[in-house]
């Protein structure tokens, strides 16, 4: 085969391959959202995080505004310290309420942010003061049974 034709086909092949890698990282892996935007970090103390995992989304009004980056256990307060990284296009007021919610009945758990009315906005490294723990199904059923039992007395 002619050398130029060979070069052409190989060049085309490499270009298609690199395009496929780009599609995988941009469109499928959604790489662009991670890097192009500026982030700020918040922490929150939760009594019980249930099944929350690192990389779980942080949503407000159903829109993803950030991700959980780290989960630690604090031996001072004996609760879970959740670190989350939020997109700096979305500032939240100081009295924002963070709760751990579940997508669907058995779906993945995420952090829901409900904005408060404070004029002061949260800054990088701030701590969320108002948190609400995950709903644990066993506790809920236990409470329900307990209520039922006390009713029938």
């Amino acid at each position: 085969m002619q050398r130029t034709a060979l070069d052409f086909w190989v060049g085309l092949f490499v270009l298609i391959g690199i395009t496929a890698l780009m599609i995988l990282s941009m469109k499928v892996g959604n790489l662009s959202v991670y890097n192009t935007s500026q982030n700020y970090v918040l922490t929150g103390h939760f009594e019980n995080i249930g099944g929350l995992k690192v990389r779980a989304p942080v949503k407000s009004a159903g829109v993803v505004v950030g991700r959980v980056t780290d989960i630690q256990f604090s031996t001072q307060t004996y609760d879970a310290v959740v670190t989350m990284s939020l997109d700096s296009r979305f500032p939240f007021p100081k009295d924002t309420f963070a709760s751990i919610l579940t997508a669907g009945l058995l779906g993945e758990q995420y952090i829901g942010l409900a904005a408060g009315g404070d004029e002061v906005m949260l800054k990088d490294g701030d701590k969320l003061m108002k948190t609400n723990s995950a709903m644990v199904l066993e506790e809920l059923i236990g409470r329900f049974l307990f209520d039922k039992a006390s009713e029938s007395d």
Binding site: L24, S25, K27, V28, G29, N30, L31, V33, Y34, R55, P57, V64
Partner: peptide
């Protein structure tokens, strides 16, 4: 797909 696929872990 985009929320589940991570660049580093998966791709």
């Amino acid at each position: 797909m985009q929320s589940a696929v991570d660049f580093r872990f998966d791709i």
